[in-house]
Simulated assay, not measured.
Amino acid sequence: MKTNFLKLGLAAVAILAFSFGNAQQTTGDIGKGEDLSQSSVLNGTIRVIDNKGTKKFLQVQNGLTLLTDTTPDGGYVSTWQLGGTLSDDTTITLNDGTTANGFVIDGVNFSLENIVTTTADAATATTAESGTETGYTLLVRNEATGNVEKLLATDLIQSGQEAFTATAGQTDYPLTGAPVLPAFAQVYVYRNGAKLVANTDYTVAGSSVTLIPSTTAPNDWAVLAGDVIEVHFVK
């Protein structure tokens, strides 16, 4: 009689089992999945009893994997581990700097503060965190640390500008702060508002621009006292 009652009970459980929806379930009851007793394959259900004989089931789902070794001496060894197929849509709240506790991925900075450089010169720049910003940010990899960090879209392209009042014949124009300038194609030099030809009327080295006046007509020109030499760069 007890055997028949047990069989009827198991049959009733099988009939009442239902499928999970797509949304992540965080409340309510979760029905028992596949019952393999000792979970001989991945993600099976383990049947156990407590110290009073109450029958219970242990199972995993949604991104966790259960693997049972049936060959060790002394019984079965079942292991729960991270790694598996998500069966439901899953939401994990990242630590955004406003909550006391949150999910953190080592090497990924998802705080509300943004990483900015202290100088426009990539070779000597150091990083610091600015205050809370608005607008768009990009995820970038810091090659020095390997960390994934946030970068303001406005900080992605660095630029600079400086104007000089020339003396007669002056050709060298070192920029204040000695930023390392990019290639000449990214440096734009103007004399009294007229653009000079890159790598012909001027060259770029280090943090300085050097003008190359010409005596060949019809492109002859010279630097006169009071000329305004303006330097722009983008990198």
Results as ranks from 00 to 15, higher is better:
111 S>F: 00
10 L>S: 09
186 Q>G: 00
131 G>D: 08
157 I>G: 13
192 N>R: 07
89 D>S: 11
94 L>N: 10
60 V>Y: 01
74 G>C: 07
160 G>H: 03
91 T>V: 07
149 E>S: 02
181 L>W: 00
63 G>D: 12
84 G>C: 11
74 G>F: 04
84 G>K: 00
155 D>T: 01
199 N>C: 12
173 Y>P: 07
165 T>D: 06
22 N>M: 05
117 T>P: 08
145 T>H: 10
26 T>K: 02
30 I>K: 13
58 L>V: 15
23 A>Y: 04
99 T>C: 05
26 T>W: 02
42 L>P: 12
34 E>Y: 04
12 A>F: 06
214 S>D: 07
78 S>A: 15
133 E>D: 10
188 Y>I: 10
22 N>T: 03
209 V>N: 02
72 P>Q: 13
54 T>Y: 03
4 N>R: 15
29 D>P: 05
152 L>V: 05
84 G>Y: 00
151 L>K: 08
174 P>Q: 06
140 V>I: 07
79 T>W: 02
197 V>P: 01
75 G>K: 09
56 K>P: 06
177 G>S: 02
142 N>E: 02
154 T>C: 03
107 G>C: 05
12 A>M: 09
201 D>W: 00
11 A>N: 15
57 F>A: 08
25 Q>L: 11
52 K>Y: 08
98 T>P: 01
65 T>C: 13
153 A>F: 02
175 L>E: 01
96 D>T: 11
115 I>L: 10
24 Q>T: 11
191 R>T: 10
159 S>C: 06
158 Q>P: 05
8 L>E: 08
193 G>S: 07
137 T>P: 01
22 N>Q: 13
84 G>H: 05
